[in-house]
Write a protein that binds this DNA or RNA. Structure first.
Lengths: 258, 258
DNA sequence: GCCCCAAACAACGA
DNA sequence: CTCGTTGTTTGGGG
């Protein structure tokens, strides 16, 4: 459910709520969703303090004062909660106990993944400085026959863009999702790069404006086209729905195909 | 160009013309199209006699009296010729000299392939006894999501059917080329098996009736639907043309989709 | 709304 | 009308 902007806001709020807190205990409820045992996590984390929560692509990274890290991928339905009692939280995968509260990671589908000390990805994050226009050009040429929508949500090309925000980005850039990566003119590529950064950063602000303290759930009401509740985009064009590479896609006739 | 029925007729005619003839010499004009050098072929074949030419899938096999074999795949444009002088034959890949004539294999695209002692394929030939209805059923289930046209021309499933005859077969069986392999009812599968054998064997006779001595070139004028010169099939239905898995396909609305 | 794998399909070259 | 290789898309499952 959460995509990059949601996770970005969660990171700030979780950092605000939990930084400097000392880990009292760690519980793993689904060993097969974690690359380390409960014992290993306890050894690694107990008595360390939280430094920060940082988003990396679609994962959340928790950095601890002793240099240990935890990576969490929420997949489709995972969520964070901060609770005083574990009992009421259903579908728990992980809980970290602090003095008088717990951070839980839960997922009714049990698809979320927990990683102790995840390796740094070499793929640029969509909001990182190394995701440059020239990197984008190079990859577009390498993947010239790939549909631009499939290209942008491919986490091995750029990390963080998901199926909802890619529609917003392509709509803002006025590019049809079916365009071939290798066919975008260079002015359109520059426009696309700008739209990626602009849409994602603007969405962070829009989420904060609606729910400044959010650490789970999604806010999508501000979306321009990837939005079940709209029939028209802000320019008044009717929103169309179809499947592009098996994924539900919202777009309008304003978007040019290349 | 040549498909199974053409090759079947070539095999009979080449056997008729060349069997018992003794190999005087062998010339290889394109070493990269052959798995053996000219010297190796000369050592293997000189002074052996031709036993027979036999079609195997879309390949021609020449069997020699000393147990050696040559496999020839003509690909799209390759051809056999029997000539008294090599000079006029363009695009030669291979020539076998007999007492006073040559058998040549030529190909303007240089795609044809020559194989000394090809290994026997374990995939059944479409006209062999091991291509049974029950084999067909098994493979249809294994490849259940594959389009039936793509299925039938896949040489790893059954050898010998190409893009022209598959259209004739599917038209005779009244099966749409887009049908999924796994969805054919069992009576339709039996009908399909019968059509495969019937269309191919009948076409051998039709070619022989038109040109009994043919050893190259193609005869397609008798084709019911895969035929540029027809607008209607024999039943009067208009012939439609489209692309199925990138291949030109002729069919009519008589053919049911499963 | 996610990611993975296997299988099918498309694009290109020889 | 042919085949092989590579990369992309599809479909099913967790």
């Amino acid at each position: 459910m959460p995509e990059l902007p949601d996770l970005e806001v969660y990171a700030g709020n979780l950092t605000k709520q939990l930084s400097q807190k000392e880990v009292a205990d760690v519980f793993v409820f689904a060993e097969d969703k974690c690359n380390a045992s409960q014992e290993k996590l306890q050894q690694s984390l107990i008595s360390a303090r939280v430094d920060s929560f940082r988003r990396s692509g679609k994962e959340m990274h928790i950095n601890f004062s002793n240099g240990q890290k935890i990576g969490i991928h929420l997949m489709l339905m995972g969520r964070f909660d901060i609770v005083s009692d574990l009992e009421p939280v259903p579908f728990k995968l992980l809980a970290i106990r602090f003095a008088k509260q717990y951070l839980t990671v839960s997922d009714p589908k049990i698809w979320a993944k927990i990683t102790l000390n995840p390796v740094e990805s070499k793929v640029p994050d969509a909001l990182s400085a190394d995701f440059t226009p020239s990197y984008l050009v190079t990859k577009l040429m390498e993947k010239k026959t790939k549909q631009i929508k499939a290209f942008l949500i491919d986490q091995s090309i750029v990390r963080g863009i998901g199926n909802a925000y890619v529609d917003e980005i392509l709509w803002e850039a006025k590019i049809s999702p079916e365009s071939k990566a290798g066919k975008l003119p260079s002015d359109v590529v520059n426009c696309l790069h700008h739209s990626i950064c602009h849409v994602l950063q603007r969405s962070v602000k829009e989420i904060l404006a609606i729910n400044p303290d959010i650490i789970n759930g999604e806010i999508r009401e501000f979306m321009r086209v990837h939005n079940k509740n709209r029939q028209h985009c802000p320019n008044g064009f009717p929103i169309k729905v179809s499947k592009i590479t098996s994924k539900t896609t919202y777009y309008t006739d304003e978007q040019r195909i290349f």
